[in-house]
C-alpha cells in the first residue's frame, strides 16, 4: 500500500507534475546560476534539502498552527532551514557561497517549497511529506542540471571546472548571459511537452 503511494509520488513529482516544466514554478532563484554546473548542483541540493525538511516540519506541526497565520509560519520554517544551508555553505565552501551571492537567501521565496508545504504537507503524514519534498527536489534537479551542463560546456568549454573541449574552442558569449537561460528552459519545456502529448495521442 505504502509502496504504491511512493511510486505514485515518484511519477507525479518527476514527470507528470514536474514543478518546473508543468507548473513553471520556482525557477527564479536557480536559473541565475545555471551558467556553472557546480553552483547549480549545490543550489539544487540545497533546494531539495530545504523542501524535504520544511515539508517534514510543516506536516509535524500542522495541527498546532492556526489556519490564519499558517503562511507566515511556513515561511519562517523555510527560512530557518535556508539559514542552516547558508551557514553551512559559508563555513565549508566559502568560494561557492560567495559566487552564489544573494541567490542562497532567495531559496526562501522559491515557490516550489511553499507550494509543496501548502499542497502536500498540510494534509499528509510527516514521513510521506518528507519523501514528497525530496522527490520534488529531484524533479527540479533533473530539469536544471542538463541546462547547466549545456550552458557551461558551450560558454567556457568546461564541465565541473575541468576543460574538456579542445583549446581552440571559441566560447559563445550568449551562453554566459541571461537570455540563453530563458531559451534553454523554453526548449526543454517544448521537448518535455511534445513527448507527453505524443504519449496521450498513443493512448487514444
Amino acid at each position: 500500500m505504502k509502496n504504491s503511494k511512493t511510486t505514485v509520488l515518484i511519477k507525479n513529482n518527476i514527470w507528470i507534475n514536474n514543478p518546473v516544466f508543468v507548473q513553471i514554478l520556482g525557477i527564479c532563484s536557480t536559473l541565475a546560476v545555471t551558467n556553472n554546473f557546480k553552483n547549480t548542483l549545490i543550489m539544487a541540493v540545497s533546494v531539495t534539502f530545504v523542501t524535504a525538511f520544511s515539508n517534514f516540519t510543516v506536516s509535524m506541526l500542522k495541527s498546532f498552527i492556526p489556519n490564519k497565520v499558517r503562511m507566515i509560519v511556513q515561511t519562517l520554517i523555510i527560512s530557518f532551514y535556508v539559514i542552516i544551508v547558508d551557514i553551512v555553505l559559508k563555513a565549508y565552501m566559502p568560494d561557492i557561497s560567495k559566487a552564489l551571492g544573494p541567490y542562497v537567501g532567495l531559496v526562501i521565496t522559491n515557490c516550489i517549497i511553499m507550494g509543496r508545504a501548502e499542497a502536500f504537507a498540510q494534509a499528509n503524514a510527516p514521513i510521506i511529506s518528507f519523501v514528497d519534498g525530496f522527490l520534488s527536489g529531484i524533479g527540479y534537479m533533473i530539469v536544471l542540471l542538463p541546462i547547466a551542463l549545456i550552458r557551461e560546456l558551450l560558454s567556457f568549454g568546461t564541465f565541473y571546472g575541468y576543460s574538456i573541449l579542445p583549446e581552440n574552442y571559441i566560447s559563445m558569449t550568449i551562453m554566459i548571459t541571461a537570455p540563453s537561460a530563458f531559451f534553454m528552459i523554453a526548449v526543454y519545456i517544448w521537448i518535455a511537452k511534445s513527448i507527453s502529448f505524443n504519449k496521450k495521442g498513443d493512448k487514444k
Binding site: W190, K193, S194
Partner: peptide, 9 residues
C-alpha cells in the same frame, strides 16, 4: 507549436 504554447513561448 502545441508543445511550445503558453509557458514555452
Amino acid at each position: 507549436p502545441a508543445g511550445l504554447k503558453d509557458a514555452g513561448i
